[in-house]
């Protein structure tokens, strides 16, 4: 059967002519998006530029956006994304500058990987042979080591879309790999760095990275664990940490969330500039009758508190 692909074209020598170009190719049930793109390049239009190599979702070269969502195109069958032969729109991955057509500049990606010190820094006596780590620890880390650095998560990250200083899901997943490695001696320094602006607290928990990762690395889940580790290590002086603590306190007390208190606690009770800056928003909301003066509670807050105590042991 026939399948049409609308492919984003960009030629740096003729930037004015950037746009979509339609190609129609013959496909079967098992044709992948990459197969179709290769057919276009080999048989129809040799000027189309893209990256690909292994064709087996190992090398991580062929991440692209298919109908707006980042995917490894070698792993994506056309029949799974266009079951009724719908036209597929192919764009380069997002949040990185385009070099030509579907090829992007990965420098920002690698710069952020470098920024998280992506190598082991053991401390103490150097063993005569290997550094030992338990099977359990390594099996856990394999979940993150599986990252093939394809950039799909970076492409669709909603924070990077508005702030390119954010370390981003791939680099933070890499950071987790070393924070959690029992052989590393710099866990505390790493967490201190990750606790700074552009680090773990800037993730908005939108789960795009979880959704698009072709290797189930779960970058957001790793970021959440590092938030908890940072707090447990004593890095509590951030809005993010205060936000989590205030949230937990409110639910523990009333069974429900008190949004007003959450706002004040997160900014910091003595952070007068931030509080004043937000005052107009608060006042507008009050004038419109947005906030319940009495607060709201579970009908059995004690039962909720009991669960907190039982699980947290305090």
């Amino acid at each position: 059967m026939e399948q049409t692909l609308r492919v984003k074209r960009y030629d740096p020598e003729n930037p004015g002519e950037a746009g979509y170009q339609d190609y129609t190719v013959e496909v079967t049930d098992t044709t992948t998006v990459l197969d179709a793109l290769l057919t276009i390049r080999e048989d129809m239009d040799g000027t189309l530029s893209m990256r690909c190599s292994c064709r087996a979702s190992i090398c991580g070269s062929c991440a692209m956006r298919v109908d707006g969502q980042a995917k490894l195109v070698c792993k994506t069958r056309i029949s799974s994304v266009a079951p009724n032969g719908e036209t597929l729109t192919i764009d380069p991955v997002g949040n990185m500058p385009v070099i030509k057509d579907l090829v992007v500049e990965f420098k920002p990606f690698w710069d952020k990987m470098r920024a998280v010190t992506p190598y082991l820094q053991p401390e103490g006596v150097i063993p005569e042979a290997e550094y030992f780590a338990s099977d359990e620890d390594m099996v856990h880390l394999v979940g993150v080591v599986n990252c093939i650095q394809c950039g799909a998560c970076v492409s669709d990250c909603t924070v990077l879309e508005v702030d390119d200083s954010f370390l981003g899901p791939a680099a933070l997943a890499k950071a987790y790999r070393f924070v959690k490695d029992p052989r590393d001696g710099h866990q505390k320094d790493r967490l201190e760095d990750l606790n700074k602006p552009s680090g773990v607290w800037d993730c908005t928990r939108c789960m795009q990275c979880v959704e698009v990762c072709p290797k189930d690395v779960d970058p957001m889940g790793r970021i959440m664990v590092m938030r908890d580790m940072a707090m447990e290590t004593g890095f509590n002086n951030t809005s993010g940490s205060r936000h989590t603590e205030s949230f937990a306190k409110s639910v523990k007390k009333n069974g429900r969330l008190d949004e007003m208190k959450l706002a004040v606690d997160s900014m910091g009770k003595f952070n007068i500039p931030a509080l004043l800056d937000s005052a107009p928003v608060g006042l507008r909301a009050m004038r419109k009758g947005k906030f319940p003066w009495k607060g709201h509670k579970s009908s059995e807050p004690d039962k909720v508190k009991q669960i907190f105590e039982k699980i947290e042991g305090k």
């Binding site: 949230f247 937990a248 639910v251 969330l257 909720v304 669960i307 699980i311």
Partner: peptide, 24 residues
């Protein structure tokens, strides 16, 4: 009598706690 779901925030501190509130 239901509690807050934790909105993903409680879960980042203690997933089991968040899950227990929801399972309740």
């Amino acid at each position: 009598s239901a509690a807050c779901t934790g909105a993903g925030v409680l879960q980042e501190r203690n997933q089991k706690l968040g899950d227990a509130l929801n399972v309740r």
